[in-house]
Nucleic acid binder design. Structure first.
Lengths: 207, 207
DNA sequence: CATTTTTCTAACCATATAATTAAACTATTT
DNA sequence: AAATAGTTTAATTATATGGTTAGAAAAATG
């Protein structure tokens, strides 16, 4: 009888997942310890194996969730209609908000992919395969119609993403560099919701 | 008698360090194994402890070297004279070259700092402390004299660095996204030596 | 309320890993 | 050439860590 019961389970499994996220996001696959996850979830170590069988499985659950949070909105950007200016504004505002709420995810994901590039195929390929084609066409159209300065669409895409994501990856350095506490840092990111689109639009608009 | 001898040491210590770099850069502090480093150096595991006492020490030697490689040129940028356009071009060209030659370093350094932010004080503080002040003044001067569009100097600094470093951190994703092999990827980076300064200068120049 | 199923715990196991040690080997010094 | 100092190896140790097991406790079922 696979059924949910009152006192246990839902909470336990969710608590494990929450603790696993906290630990994996901070320490990564290799640095994370099953014991630490169990402690943070307030349960016995054996429960981790009862619910997720092994470390690899638990990690995959955490990683899959992270990839979805960060990449779903990239597709939204690429599907979006309207002028290129509007697209940029929408994407950046949306994406910085995601950064603010999930500041741990970019370093976590990128680190795991760099240390284990074959994870790309497992988790990203379906997401990445069709993505850039439409956007590249859109940019090429705009440049050929002389609406924006000529630019390699690949540069354009990487530039936008760099500007949004990099501060999340370099958070401790940025804070140190400009003497920010966490609050100031968030403030800095929020300001970038306006300044990045300005920066980009200025750079591609015809004079 | 602390003296160097013919048959041993210099080579051994350097071979250890070289192997340690290779392994730490790819796997990070937690993922790296002393055995793997020993194997890659073609020596016995005990030699690692003979020369570097423990894993922590070996790691620090590798990390210190990485930080220097990546950060020395940031200071050069900040000291550089000349117009802001020239500074930008010099910095970006220089920095992309460093990226091409040390593509593993940015993900390595940033990951270690994110997983262990207290390393910042140990390795970076002396480098970071005085750095941004001069550059910020320079940018503020340019804006106040109406030579460039008004921009938060902190945004300006982070934007340049983002555009240079991010592709190195996202290398596997970029390659997958645009169907690049390693050669094409390097080509892509080399092109950015021209396109990034154009992008930045366009975005800040007065119309 | 007896039985079955699910959830949970404490103790244990096997292995991997960093670190140590004792002794052999090589070079340098006198 | 003998003595000393420095380098390397193989074997061993201590511990950390992922994973297992047997069985108790709790909940669901009929």
């Amino acid at each position: 009888m696979v059924r949910k019961m009152d006192k246990y389970d839902i909470n336990t499994e969710e608590r494990i997942l929450k603790a696993a996220k906290s630990v994996f996001h901070r320490k990564g696959m290799y640095g994370a310890r099953m014991q630490e996850i169990a402690d943070e979830a307030g349960i016995n170590k054996a429960m981790l194996h009862y619910y997720f069988r092994n470390k690899e499985n638990l990690f995959k659950a955490v990683f899959r969730d992270a990839v979805e949070k960060i990449f779903i909105n990239v597709s939204k950007f690429l599907e979006s209609e309207g002028t290129i200016d509007e697209s940029i504004k929408n994407f950046v505002e949306n994406y910085i908000d995601i950064m603010i709420e999930n500041i741990y995810l970019p370093p976590f994901i990128l680190n795991e992919i760099n240390q284990n590039p074959e994870k790309l195929s497992e988790f990203f390929k379906p997401l990445l395969e069709s993505l850039p084609v439409q956007l590249i066409k859109k940019i090429l159209k705009e440049t050929s119609e002389n609406k924006i300065k000529p630019i390699d669409p690949r540069d354009f895409i990487i530039n936008i993403i760099s500007l949004c994501i990099f501060p999340a990856i370099a958070k401790p350095i940025v804070k140190e560099l400009f003497n920010m506490d966490d609050e100031k840092f968030i403030e800095f990111l929020k300001n970038r919701k306006k300044s990045i689109p300005e920066f980009i639009i200025n750079s591609i608009k015809l004079t």
